[in-house]
Simulated assay, not measured.
Amino acid sequence: MNENELKKRHFYRAKEEAKFADNSEISTPQTSDPAYRLAFQDKDFLLREELRPVRFQLELLKPEMLLEEAGIESTLVIYGSARIPEPAKADALMDAATDDRSREIAGRLKEKSKFYDEARKLARIASECGIVEPDGKRHFVVCSGGGPSIMEAANRGAQDVGKESIGLNIVLPHEQAPNIYVTPSLSFQFHYFALRKMHFLIRARAVAAFPGGFGTFDELFELITLIQTGKIEPLPIVLFGKDFWNRVINFEELMLEGTISPSDLDLFHIVDDAEEGWDIIRKFYDLPCG
């Protein structure tokens, strides 16, 4: 073999350069100072305030590249509370309640525990649909926030039928870990909420929003705003829990107050069960499975 044959690359790759730069056997004042580290290996440098734009770019690129390499073309995004228990654990909340207010809250959470099963069922239906293009690109891969409760149910439903699912976790001041049902190679951790929300929607072809709090509302209303203002094309948005959504938000009054248009009420659908929700998605895209 000719050592001087033409090659695709003339420069060494970054991994190779990093090995060349390993000066562990050489210890001098110069090589020991942080200034001598390669910039891309210098964690302290990368965490400087001035490097925030670089960290933004890295947090955008890493999930995008890995999802592309995994052949994930589109997703079914499932939003929802981190506090709603699965039915088997709902009674424990009631037992822990110590006063009237906490008992009422526990009771309402117990009522909503049925949506854990509905989220799990929806994820199972979408995953079983298993739309795969000839080139291997996969569609309607389940994607959640990677946390507990409704998010856990989403990832669990995909695992029930042996399919992969995505978890987009967020670093918080209190301890947080991805639920055990997220596919490990598709489990991502974010520092920036903005980048996390962007990744929820880059591949989303349908979104299901289950009962939730500030986080769920933030994610849902940003999506509705993007469609309302024409920043993205319409896609199915399915809200689960008629009693919940009609009680906590009076969409009709928003319209009557003139702050949204009557047609804005058509941007989403409110349902109670997984079959009805998936049917809306299926009909929107004329999917072969139902």
Rank of each mutant, 00 (worst) to 15 (best):
S102N: 13
P148I: 01
A194N: 09
N2H: 07
E49C: 00
S32Y: 02
I72G: 11
S185Q: 15
A119Y: 00
D243Y: 05
E3C: 02
R108I: 01
S261E: 14
A90R: 06
E104R: 10
L66S: 11
P236K: 09
L220Y: 11
N4V: 01
E64S: 11
Q41C: 07
E128I: 02
L67C: 08
H10S: 07
S24H: 06
E276Y: 02
W278D: 04
F188H: 13
R13Q: 12
L66M: 10
E3Q: 09
F11I: 01
R13S: 14
P184R: 07
F190V: 04
P148A: 09
E17L: 13
G157Q: 11
S74A: 03
P53T: 07
K112I: 02
D135G: 01
N23W: 05
L122Q: 09
E49F: 04
E68D: 15
L47F: 09
S32C: 06
A90C: 05
I26Q: 12
A39F: 09
K19M: 00
Y12I: 00
S149Y: 02
A70C: 02
D135T: 06
F11D: 14
A18E: 15
T28A: 03
R108V: 03
R48L: 05
E276Q: 15
V207P: 12
L46P: 07
G130P: 05
N179E: 08
G71F: 04
Y285A: 04
S187N: 15
K43Q: 06
R52F: 03
N179F: 04
Y116Q: 08
A14G: 08
L76W: 09
L109P: 10
G147D: 00
V141P: 11
L172T: 14
V171K: 13
F268N: 11
P288H: 10
F284D: 12
F240D: 11
A96S: 15
R120M: 10
G277I: 01
F115I: 01
G241P: 09
S113N: 13
A126R: 14
P236D: 10
C289D: 12
P262V: 02
K7G: 03
L254Y: 13
